[in-house]
């Protein structure tokens, strides 16, 4: 495996970032559906505010986790205890049970893809339903990417998926939504740099824990909704 701190981006890595990756991502809105249902997000401007908040909390947290997992995947000495500790620390950063469930469902779906496209012994340490950001980080390592790639992939996905969900739910102009995400690019880059830097800790317990309680509230209310179009 390549040195995770000095890896170069590969075409395989682009596959992981492709929204067509068959890992279930298309059916997750990251809280947008509930935000739309309650009127919090109703146009491009309110979507912009929502995505900025999401990036700063869920995005930054997941970016750090993915970068940490990417580095851990490169350590031959890492054992089940290390992966279990990381799993616990991610769970501790997701206070909403619905968020934890969604994270594990997406992690399992991605593991299914990674296990068949880039099989590797490290995957057997992750359990059947690992957290999404952990699998994302390991997948980046297996495709030859490094910690910054992992953080960038996750930071970007933390807003592009929800943006696409808003497009579908509100019937927004797709170019307006793309421009919105394009304007967020510097913030996504910044979030990735933060995540990569914050992941350079010896113990998963020292990973940062940025949070936005509204995302947990939205996730819990979504899980309780009778009719829902998205899984989150």
């Amino acid at each position: 495996m390549t040195d995770p701190d000095h890896a170069t981006t590969t075409a395989a890595l682009l596959l992981l970032a492709d929204s067509r990756l068959p890992a279930g991502g298309h059916a997750h809105s990251g809280g947008v559906e509930q935000a739309v249902t309650t009127g919090r997000v109703h146009d491009v401007t309110s979507l912009d505010a929502f995505l900025r908040g999401r990036l700063s909390a869920a995005g930054a947290q997941a970016a750090a986790v993915a970068a940490y997992a990417c580095r851990l995947a490169g350590h031959d000495s890492a054992d089940g205890g290390d992966w279990r500790r990381l799993d616990d620390e991610v769970s501790a950063r997701l206070p909403s049970p619905a968020q934890r469930e969604v994270s594990r469902a997406q992690g399992r779906a991605l593991l299914r893809v990674v296990g068949r496209c880039w099989p590797a012994p490290v995957l057997s340490w992750l359990g059947e339903r690992p957290h999404h950001a952990v699998v994302q980080g390991v997948a980046v390592a297996l495709t030859g990417g490094g910690t910054h790639d992992a953080a960038l992939l996750v930071a970007s996905a933390s807003v592009t998926g929800p943006a696409s969900a808003a497009l579908r739910l509100l019937g927004l102009d797709p170019v307006d939504v793309t421009r919105l995400v394009a304007n967020l690019a510097p913030d996504i880059d910044h979030c990735a740099a933060y995540g990569a830097e914050a992941s350079a800790v010896d113990d998963a317990a020292l990973l940062p824990a940025p949070a936005l309680p509204m995302l947990d509230v939205l996730a819990e209310n979504h899980a309780r909704s009778e009719v829902k179009l998205f899984a989150s």
Binding site: R20, A27, A105, R112, L229
Partner: peptide
């Protein structure tokens, strides 16, 4: 839940259905 794209969930990205 198919994220407003029912077709995708049974053809292009079957992850949730498989689960």
């Amino acid at each position: 839940q198919t994220g407003c794209c029912p077709h995708t969930a049974v053809r292009d990205d079957i992850a949730a259905n498989l689960d």
